[in-house]
Design a protein around this nucleic acid. Structure first.
Lengths: 187, 187
DNA sequence: TTTGGTTTTTGACAATTATCAAAAGCCCGG
DNA sequence: CCGGGCTTTTGATAATTGTCAAAAACCAAA
């Protein structure tokens, strides 16, 4: 929990009262490898903070699992579309490693927004960071070729390569596993 | 201006006072076709609301203009990365049609956040919508083929086809103009 | 240390998309 | 109504990436 508080303070420092209230609103969850935080068809009603471990979000697209994001230490995690709109999730969130998470429900978070302007500000700022991150991934996906995308991964998030099977990484990069293998052999 | 207020009220209705203050913080801008709202290398210090008209954001990537988004009526528009981080923009924003816009500076917007919790909430909610929109474009870019992306455009935003040259649309979809032309001929 | 299962690599081939060049179509100003 | 410039289409070919199948490497449990 100390990590969550410390992480939040990096984004936007909170006053003691807001910090304490926030602290009380999160519940700890521990899950082991291959378990699911969310399965498609259910509504994702929580926002999670990943203290320790790793997980992935994936779609089932014509029979294949297509991983489109990873979560690691200090990431906020949810099925964003489902969480925001309240509709059924089309993705699954599965643990890649045994993990420690902290969960807050949407209702509680909304209540915190009403109670503390500064907590809503914190989230507004977090959204900005996550939006920028997604924007960069979008540009990579749309305008870079497979090799460039792999090089980008090597430079920006090399830790992914060490903790995640290549099959997941291939679809994260939007290429087939075989193509990824061939790209890697060139380095 | 009435359109901006009406649009905002669709997102998150504001009290009269906040609404009036907000109203006074925007300045009207009119630009004609082919003019620039922003050029790369400059910092984008404003958020714009597009009341009437159309524009595009594009990168210069190895000698080619790569359009990655369009703005139309009722869109909020900025070079998001530059606006948020205060760093130089890597993209250009150019008018596709003569347009009427309303501008607010980042300083003014920040001041409004401090003054009115509800305005920061409005923006927080807007971010959620824009994030979801981008997420969908990302999934399309990464996991759908050219024909599927075109079909998606046909269904979801057919107005783009009527107002934008095909060359821009091709790079918006992440394909070459020739391939887009061939896909179209199949329909 | 062996074994069975999973992950990764390799090979051959097919499908998709890009590139370059040229032709055709379209639109606006005179 | 005509001409010139811009946009879009078409054709031929090349490059990139995907698919299927099999081999190799890796790894964890007995």
């Amino acid at each position: 929990m100390q990590q969550l508080i410390a992480h939040i303070n990096k984004y936007h420092p909170l006053g003691d009262e807001a910090q304490n209230t926030l602290h009380d609103c999160f519940e700890q969850i521990t899950l082991s490898k291959n378990e699911y935080l969310l399965t498609e068809g259910r509504v994702c009603r929580h926002l999670y903070f990943l203290e320790k471990g790793a997980l992935r979000g994936y779609y089932n697209m014509d029979g294949k699992e297509v991983t489109h994001w990873f979560g690691f230490e200090e990431d906020f995690v949810t099925s964003f579309y489902s969480f925001i709109t309240g509709s059924m999730a089309v993705e699954n969130i599965q643990l890649i490693e045994g993990s420690i998470l902290w969960a807050i429900s949407k209702e509680r978070l909304t209540a915190l927004f009403n109670q503390y302007h500064e907590i809503e500000r914190l989230v507004r700022i977090a959204y900005e960071k996550y939006y920028i991150r997604l924007e960069e991934r979008f540009v990579n996906a749309q305008f870079k070729n497979a090799t460039e995308r792999y090089e980008n991964l090597l430079q920006q998030t090399p830790h992914i390569l060490e903790r995640v099977p290549l099959g997941f990484i291939a679809s994260y990069l939007g290429i087939s596993q075989e193509t990824l293998s061939r790209i890697r052999s060139k380095f």
